[in-house]
Nucleic acid binder design. Structure first.
Lengths: 316, 316
DNA sequence: TTTCCTTTTGAAATTAATTTCATATTGCGC
DNA sequence: GCGCAATATGAAATTAATTTCAAAAGGAAA
């Protein structure tokens, strides 16, 4: 590496390349050194730290937590929002506002989106900015979780989101969980329901929340999951619910019989979609870890507080 | 520029690109943004100063002077050497040592090189490191400037250099300046001389010094330029001699009759070659400026002291 | 609204950068 | 010196980045 060992030359090449924005070809012609050699000089200079690239990042703290989350769970990406600046809004709303802004960039033009029910999903969808982007179709990923509280139903969220983006919305006319496996089977075979589920499987993006599995959980409180169901899930170690999937602390999918009684899609069935999961709150730390350990979430969206808790959480 | 205006996204893209060395394609796939858009985001981030590239340059002072020289004279490149560290050697030797090291990189493998006579050229050639590089042919660019002091003759320098690089050396068997134009013409038609001159015109690199034009000038002291010649040149405003060319303060070529009596090549005749000119010394400032203003020098090699003087020199 | 002008966009074309690979070279042991 | 392994090199192939361009979309004025 005769030529490359000359530091003075490395500096000169790098100045021409990085500071004066000359192409490697130009530099090659100027100095009479072959193009590959210029390339190697630049690579060496980078390796040796002669070239320093820094990015002025006002979001270092968020970014750092994102890196940690990505590393810990092998995520495709993470979005951590600074929701400390709460101005009169609830923390969920202020989180959703920021989160929606960021997550919005991850939903490409003309894509189809599947949505889950829940307060987190609702907050984010409400906070989505009515951008110029057009989407194709918004599909609910799970049936109705109650006969009341329509505003957080997947159907409703799909409709709301569709209106924002000039998209069509489909409707899953079924309860989330029924009492018999056989009934669930029959329902899923119904043309109107099968079509929506099939379409859900094919969405480009799935927007979901991560839920706890305890008495306070929304689907328990609203009666979608009965006490016995909850007990059954808990006996299997389930601590998190995401869409139609339940996960134990290790991130293993559990709850076979209940899943079979669910009219909706599991994360496994959504493997063709980019799954964006959002959740915040100290009480959700365990559920979040469980869900992320399943490796089925592509992008996780949260706030700094929750991110810190999740990053520090041990497996057992 | 919807996507591009999002600073958070810009930061994320730049981190992936510059710090994690992911390709734009990968980032595009990861974030679901088109490749050209990623490219634009990076460009914008650079423009807005979000990405900062700095080069740790131990030679800042030299580099800065090089930039000034390049800008002032429109040079292709400049090499400024820090020759303050003189350890027993003459300043010319210590300059030549460093200068040779740098200039060596500008002489590509297998090229042919033309050399001028003079102390500066000699010092540099003596200081050239016997590298692994092979050169084709070394050619003197001008005839003998005296019957003594052979060691600084172009012929000798060509021979010395040829030995260093395993190249052939040619010999220009003629005096530098003769007393009659007709004689010069006849000589230049001689097969043995014409061939060498023709070959000089075709060299890839020309290594030359920049000389003063006064009583102290080497070619005057050694008698190659007679007192009358010097007077004639000075009456034309000539202040610099480079190879067979003479320049006035404005960088205009002068000395037609004397040039016609010279057996050697002018810088104009060397326009196919990359001309590397070296010179140091306070007393040469004026000559250097004149030579560089001619726009015929591609690369100028000097030391920091001289560079400072030259940079500050006004035209009149 | 409708029109026109400006801006934005991604596909494709172009250009640039990097890697591969066969060749050449050096330094080292014999 | 001679051969061998390790390294270095540039031409060509590959891959990556950027620009061009035509189409689409937004926004301002009528």
């Amino acid at each position: 590496m005769g030529t490359i060992r000359n530091k003075r030359l490395m500096v000169k090449v790098c100045e021409l390349y990085f500071l004066q924005n000359k192409s490697q070809k130009e530099i090659s012609a100027l100095l009479g050194i072959s193009r590959p050699q210029i390339c190697r000089i630049i690579t060496t200079a980078k390796d040796e730290g002669i070239v320093q690239i820094s990015i002025s990042n006002p979001y270092v703290r968020e970014t750092e937590l994102e890196h940690l989350l990505i590393q810990k769970f092998g995520l495709r990406d993470a979005l951590v929002v600074d929701s400390t600046s709460i101005d009169g809004e609830s923390s969920l709303q202020s989180f959703a506002k920021e989160a929606a802004k960021l997550a919005g960039d991850y939903i490409p033009q003309d894509s189809s989106v599947g949505v889950m029910s829940g307060y987190t999903a609702k907050a984010m969808i409400d906070a989505l900015e009515p951008s110029s982007k057009k989407l194709k179709l918004i599909v609910p990923l799970i049936g109705g979780i109650s006969t009341t509280n329509m505003s957080i139903h997947a159907d409703t969220l799909a409709l709301n989101m569709a209106m924002l983006y000039g998209a069509d919305a489909w409707n899953l006319n079924a309860p989330a969980v029924v009492s018999e496996v056989s009934l669930a089977k029959s329902l899923k075979k119904e043309e109107a329901i099968a079509r929506v589920l099939e379409c859900g499987r094919k969405t480009d993006i799935a927007l979901v929340g991560i839920g706890n599995l305890n008495e306070e959980a929304t689907n328990v409180r609203l009666g979608s999951l009965k006490k016995e169901d909850l007990a059954q899930l808990q006996s299997q170690g389930a601590v998190a619910s995401v869409c139609g999937s339940y996960f134990d602390r290790e991130g293993r999918e559990v709850g076979g019989e209940i899943t079979a009684r669910t009219i909706g899609l599991t994360l496994g069935e959504l493997r063709r979609s980019k799954i964006i999961a959002a959740a915040i709150g100290d009480e959700k730390t365990e559920a979040i870890c469980a869900a992320l350990r399943s490796k089925k979430v592509d992008i996780f969206v949260t706030d700094m507080e929750t991110a810190k808790k999740v990053v520090l959480e041990d497996k057992i």
